[in-house]
Design a protein around this nucleic acid. Structure first.
Lengths: 290, 290
DNA sequence: CAAGTTCTCTGACTAAAGTCAGAGAATGGA
DNA sequence: TCCATTCTCTGACTTTAGTCAGAGAACTTG
């Protein structure tokens, strides 16, 4: 329950407010405290630290010197690359971080203390709901080059999932193609959904001139299913297709992809006769854009 | 929905995180931005501003000079008291504040935009629930002197409510006494519940040596009923009574106070024969502390 | 009306936060 | 091997934030 509360805290303050480091500083300047916390128990590269906290390199360097002087961290050269430096917490630093962790837990607990058991349960449920929905709203969708690492990641995951779910696996080479060029404007397009910078879903279009536009590569990361991202991706694809003058969208799918089939039906796609010979397909759908 | 979102924001960031003024600053130092916002559209006394934001008087004075130099505020003498100064926003200041307001609304709207109608509804409900419960958890209960303004306020409101609800009104003089001395240790005690510094409920004990301890003055502000404060007050009274060695608690109540009666029953009080001649009472309850 | 209080302001500080321009070592690629 | 790039560090700043001690005007109270 407490860790749930803290996760909520993180999401909400990140999305809605600022981080509350103030109470974490414990007499220390806030900048130092934030660095101390962000180093984590396993150590971290200085460059990573800098980009995560968005700090000036000179400023961070000085913060590290101060922490070093306090005996809380040690900075050493990275074994792989001599330019990069790595920070680790010392015993004292780890103890300090553990104390901050404890204080943070206690703070969460102090919020729960006045509530009855029933109220705590309801608070937890409501916080989880808020967190889920705010997370959903943080997902952003943008057109991407199919060669971009994020796009590659999504397509790889998509294929892996098909291979796992289809009876007898999945071999992309046997399936109807949708290669990089076919998903690059003007031939087609690929949308990638990202959450906090990580790719979490995709969807693509293949244009065929006056003939119906094909929907391909619809995939949502299992980690964030149930947040309506599939619907958003599909709606965005439809909007893009309409912009390009498409009147009809078509897609085919495998019988094992039940959520996808439900999604297409809910989005107004009607099942039609097979319009191609995709070996992995059992269902063919079509929708007329209005 | 947006104002609900912003109310939630305020509660959550106040309770869980820090205020997010950063995005409100718009190139201005944070301190100035906070002051600008807090002045409000109607103007404010400098002393109020200082206590609300918890600023040093010298610091605030300088912040006001800076805003004045920027043409955003005017500082003038208070008409009633020449020592007090009053700040008002100029046209430019009002425009700036309106802009901050707009940005804040837009920020809330941008969170909602990616969500479907259903999701928005669920988010609103969950946020309201979280806000309600965090508010409940912000109420603090402490023993107070019955002569303290907060205590007076509660008792006054309590009497006013009885007068409104009882058939034929309520005259404290006809009721069994529970005057200041009787509610002051060691004769008795008064608990006052406060929310953000405002009194929102009370409850009292009258000790009678070896005889059962009386519960008096149970009241919760209508504004925050349904948050379990009555139960908390009663539990706290019972704990205090137990500390003082009490074994039995007693109370009487009027038939019109149905929520109170339900509360007492739920808390384990059993209805007993009249043990006093309180003219306004219809029910007498008793509980043995274990 | 004298004495104490309240309120705001200025001067004189300190500490923290953050910026910018290099210097110098290490690395990767032509 | 040389040159551009990456990465960290130092020096030399500026701006914010915040504190503390009084001064002086305006009010309150005995």
């Amino acid at each position: 329950m407490i860790s749930q509360m803290r996760r909520f805290n993180r999401t909400v303050t990140q999305r809605i407010g600022a981080l509350d480091d103030t109470f974490l500083s414990r007499g220390r300047p806030l900048g130092q405290a934030r660095v101390l916390w962000e180093i984590g128990t396993g150590g971290i590269q200085v460059r990573t630290l800098r980009s995560r906290l968005g700090l000036d390199s000179g400023y961070l360097s000085r913060l590290l010197r101060a922490l070093e002087a306090g005996g809380l961290v040690v900075v050493g050269a990275d074994p792989g690359d001599g330019r990069i430096r790595t920070v680790r917490l010392t015993q004292a630093g780890l103890a300090e971080r553990a104390e901050l962790d404890r204080l943070s837990d206690e703070r969460a607990a102090s919020i729960l203390r006045p509530l009855s058991g029933r109220q705590r349960g309801r608070l937890a449920a409501a916080m989880a709901e808020v967190e889920r929905l705010l997370t959903a709203s943080m997902v952003s969708i943008a057109a991407a080059d199919p060669r971009h690492p994020d796009a590659r990641h999504c397509v790889r995951e998509y294929f892996a999932e098909l291979a796992g779910r289809f009876d007898g696996g999945f071999d992309p080479a046997r399936s109807i193609s949708a290669d990089d060029d076919e998903l690059t404007p003007p031939a087609g397009l690929l949308l990638v959904a990202t959450l906090r910078g990580d790719p979490v879903g995709c969807g693509a279009l293949k244009f065929h001139g006056g003939a119906p536009t094909e929907v391909k590569r619809m995939w949502v990361s299992p980690a964030i299913r149930g947040l309506g991202l599939g619907r958003r991706l599909l709606a965005e694809l439809e909007a893009r297709a309409a912009e390009r003058g498409a009147h009809t969208l078509r897609l085919e799918t495998n019988e094992t992809l039940t959520e996808a089939i439900a999604l297409y039906r809910a989005a107004g796609y009607r099942e039609v006769d097979a319009f191609n010979s995709e070996p992995y397909a059992h269902h063919w759908f079509q929708k007329t854009l209005t």
